[in-house]
Design a protein around this nucleic acid. Structure first.
Ligand SMILES: [Mn+2]
Ligand SMILES: [Mn+2]
Ligand SMILES: [Zn+2]
Ligand SMILES: [Zn+2]
Lengths: 137, 137
DNA sequence: TCCTAATTTGTAACGATTACAAATTAGGAA
DNA sequence: TTCCTAATTTGTAATCGTTACAAATTAGGA
């Protein structure tokens, strides 16, 4: 697997400590965290980290396509490492966001009712497997 | 078509002037407006209208199922009169949000990867028909 | 009419995000 | 190495959408 530093360099982004740690966190943890969650996760290890830096870095990495910003259900941005296309499921009970590997070819480069579709986002909501099992037990 | 007052009474909501005007606006204009857009549209006609009342009313009507709240792409809530299931297309050029009548039976009461799906939201993004035509001309 | 509860209003508080300018850092030239 | 400059980070204040809250207004029944 490519190193975080390599990835940053390939995109002409100077691999500062902060950027490396933030990107590394998002590559390691597929939890779709908010900016604040990332900040909280890293501030112990990097006590001088600023929340502004987290926002700046997320913006830079998203503009370069290394990350993807998600407007799921609540009004807060979440971020994930950009991988294969997939859809999202949010559990209303525990709040976890799951990746679902189902894809929909029907939206690829399609025109719908005369509009040119460039992106599609499919967001599911319900009770997750884990919460369903806990309820039974 | 049922009158706005009838609809409110059926749901045990007192048909105050403010509630009637707000619901009427959403039934007439299918633009998926934000709370602020609704406020701006009505404040000339009702100069004492408070933005808090708009928020309160939208919350009440949404809880009763008369309206639907949408977290589309940007981090702001939009509202629409609750009608048949449909999906949304947002034009990145003009910002307009279009209703698309396509539906997806595949999510109805389905279990995906063990999770129980209760809601699904499909959001498309691209260039709308009108903007495509303007670009050509 | 009067009373009371529902509704509306205005203001302040809130949380997420952005703007901005000062401080720090890093990397290359001398 | 030292110095210079530009990039990066930081802290603070501002902004925006939304919510909390308490006072003011309104409406409907006794
Ligand atoms: Mn994901
Ligand atoms: Mn719609
Ligand atoms: Zn769950
Ligand atoms: Zn358009």
């Amino acid at each position: 697997m490519k190193s975080i530093i390599e990835i940053l360099k390939e995109h002409n982004i100077a691999p500062s400590m902060q950027r490396v740690k933030i990107l590394e966190y998002l590559r390691n943890y597929k939890t779709h965290p908010t900016a604040d969650m990332i900040y909280q996760a890293l501030v112990d290890e990097m006590p001088t980290l600023s929340k502004t830096t987290v926002y700046n870095t997320l913006k830079t990495l998203t503009e370069k396509g290394i990350l993807v910003a998600l407007s799921l259900f609540e009004n807060e941005e979440r971020y994930e490492y950009n991988t294969d296309p997939h859809i999202h499921f949010k559990c209303t009970k525990c709040g976890k966001i799951y990746d679902i590997s189902k894809t929909f070819e029907c939206f690829k480069n399609e025109e719908i009712e005369g509009h040119k579709v460039l992106e599609h986002h499919i967001n599911l909501k319900g009770i997750c497997k884990s919460c369903l099992e806990n309820a039974k037990g």
